[in-house]
Design a protein around this nucleic acid. Sequence first.
DNA 1: AAATGACCAAAATGTTCATTTAGTCATAAA
DNA 2: TTTATGACTAAATGAACATTTTGGTCATTT
Lengths: 190, 190
Amino acid sequence: MSEKRKQIIEAATKSFSLFGYKATTMDQVAKMANVGKGTIYTFFKSKEELLEDIVSSIISEIKREADAAIDHRLSFNENVQRALQRIFTFRKEHELTIKLLQEVRDIGTPAVRDVMKRLDREMIAYVREKIEEAMAKGEIRSCDPELTAFLMFKMYIALNVDWEKEHEPLPQQKIAELFDLYLLKGLSRR
Amino acid sequence: MSEKRKQIIEAATKSFSLFGYKATTMDQVAKMANVGKGTIYTFFKSKEELLEDIVSSIISEIKREADAAIDHRLSFNENVQRALQRIFTFRKEHELTIKLLQEVRDIGTPAVRDVMKRLDREMIAYVREKIEEAMAKGEIRSCDPELTAFLMFKMYIALNVDWEKEHEPLPQQKIAELFDLYLLKGLSRR
DNA sequence: AAATGACCAAAATGTTCATTTAGTCATAAA
DNA sequence: TTTATGACTAAATGAACATTTTGGTCATTT
């Protein structure tokens, strides 16, 4: 990949993380990347596409990390937990996702809203794949994979994000227990 | 209760349902209720308190309906389902709650946001009570009632509201099955 | 052929000011 | 006296206009 392109991505990532999407100007990005503004437009057709490309890399990175957390000697239940835990730890600790989620909450910038929705959808699709694999192998009983992945994801959001709005945060250990108790026990083969 | 007070409540409820909280003026309410504007302030200390009072009645009404859905000859699982189903049917069909939830989404009026948050909190508290009763009777195994009620509520929101944003709505029958399969099976005594 | 920054239309932002509105209170009705 | 009222006020809102900023283009330079 072109060196300039890399500089631009790096500068934009830094600026989006620091100031958010809306507050980042293309002049700003050009200056930080040490390129002319026009150069940005030889690699990306708009500011929005620049954001989309960056978030696509983030998505790949998250999937890579989730995959790395999976250990094929462990059960489906344990692995789906480990993967979801990695996904949500990333969301909570990665500067860019923190800032963009804030921006959606506080300003509601449409471009950012869309891109974060895509991130959620892709994470659900990722979980769905794992479920389909486990079903094919007979590790779990048959179920609607889309619906199951959706519920797992929503439950993780409830435990990791929503609960903290009105209560003490739950430790990861506790979240894992609850997820297992409430969601997986009902799903595993008898 | 004073006749005038009743007229005011009725007029305000109608106007909030029709135009929303922000777009309703106190002059409007006074005119619809056939009272002078000052009269409203002999019963309610502010527009916000008027809304709060109305929502308090709504909350009572929902609890009453949920209670009516409960049949003590049935199991805890069945009853908690029936109660939650009534609660969410109400949310989805009652003009005022529809309009107020819209207003929170589209405008984010703080007074309305707060009052709808209270509604959620009270519904969770209601479910929590049912869980505590069932635990005391030994109908379900021991668990954190607040956390369990919270998860049940979130799961119902996921199935009733969130799922529809990107998929075909689920019939109530299917929602009941899923709730039972995923959440309750893990909780019931073995 | 690749990179640039001056340039432009359009969008965002700041400013002003007339209108609207929540809430008060002196007065009137009961 | 008690209850009800609507004219009134201070604050909030938003329409209209001026100014600035910014995403994106393209003629020029390297």
